[in-house]
Design a protein around this nucleic acid. Structure first.
Length: 250
DNA sequence: AACACAGACAACCGCCATCCC
DNA sequence: GGGGATGGCGGTTGTCTGTGT
């Protein structure tokens, strides 16, 4: 395992993700699911660290992402939750379906921090920043989702605009995002309807090999509401993403 | 038109908790 | 029980974009 980390350090690409990389990651996850972040990049044809892939997926590529700016209700919720929970962004994100901790954190620092400071000069961080002070019950009452099991039961608390910020961002906007506590029952169609729409080329790549049979955790437990218009919208998202990649000359 | 600056946001880093052998 | 691997989280930094001069 040390070996894999060492290998990871060799020629690991950093910086902004290209549409091609996004496409590869999406196609790979569509096809094989999330089985091991640290070992996925290679078979997926990506020169990225597992962490980077995970972050990209969780924060931007997942289809269950609410795009667009925060509305008033969300703003208020963030302010209120921050007041009680401090900088526990993941916990806050868990209560805002379709938003990620990173997005909330950024939004806080760029928009809400000043406002908070103006209204609540003292409270911040004094009481709640120490997460260990919360009991399970307190966390539950605060609405924090139970921690996902290790094998990537994808929580739906994610994220904002996919793929380089702009393109396709609207494709999945304004969708009815499921709440984290119910996502288990909402899954199904996504996996079927989205598997390998445009990933053939990627998997024909000579460098592509599948080193381990995937557990297909999220394919087995699809993460999207089957009964909503969501599937069509996210379907479009993948299609458009593929098209965009082609347009970009990939 | 060119440059400087500030704001917004994407991505990385380091630490910690949990899992697995 | 111990140690390594992995994933998740929060803080921070880097880059991009818009605006003003």
């Amino acid at each position: 395992m040390v070996k894999s980390q060492q290998c990871e350090k060799e020629a690991v690409k950093k910086g902004p993700w290209s549409p091609d990389e996004d496409h590869k990651l999406i196609a790979y996850i569509q096809r094989y699911g999330i089985w091991n972040w640290s070992q996925m990049p290679k078979p997926a044809g990506l020169a990225r660290s597992g962490k980077s892939c995970r972050l990209r997926w969780v924060n931007y590529l997942r289809p269950d992402i609410k795009s667009g700016s925060f509305n008033k209700e969300e703003e208020e919720a963030i302010l209120k939750l921050h007041e009680t929970m401090g900088n526990r962004w993941s916990a806050i994100a868990a209560t805002l379906p379709g938003r990620t901790d990173n997005e909330i954190k950024n939004y806080w620092h760029t928009h809400l921090k000043k406002r908070f400071k103006a209204t609540e000069p003292v409270q911040e961080a004094q009481v709640f920043n120490d997460k260990k002070k919360f009991s399970e019950t307190e966390l539950f009452l605060l609405g924090e989702a139970p921690k996902a099991s290790k094998l990537e039961t994808i929580s739906t608390s994610s994220s904002s605009g996919p793929v380089h910020g702009d393109h396709n961002k609207d494709q999945i906007a304004e969708q009815n995002i499921c709440a984290s506590e119910t996502f288990g029952e909402q899954q199904s169609l996504w996996a079927e309807s989205h598997i390998v729409q445009d990933s053939e080329a990627i998997f024909k790549d000579p460098g592509f090999t599948l080193s381990n049979p995937p557990t297909q955790s999220w394919l087995q437990e699809p993460i999207f509401p089957s009964g909503s218009s969501y599937n069509d919208a996210s379907n479009d998202y993948w299609v458009n993403l593929s098209m965009q990649a082609e347009i970009d000359g990939i």
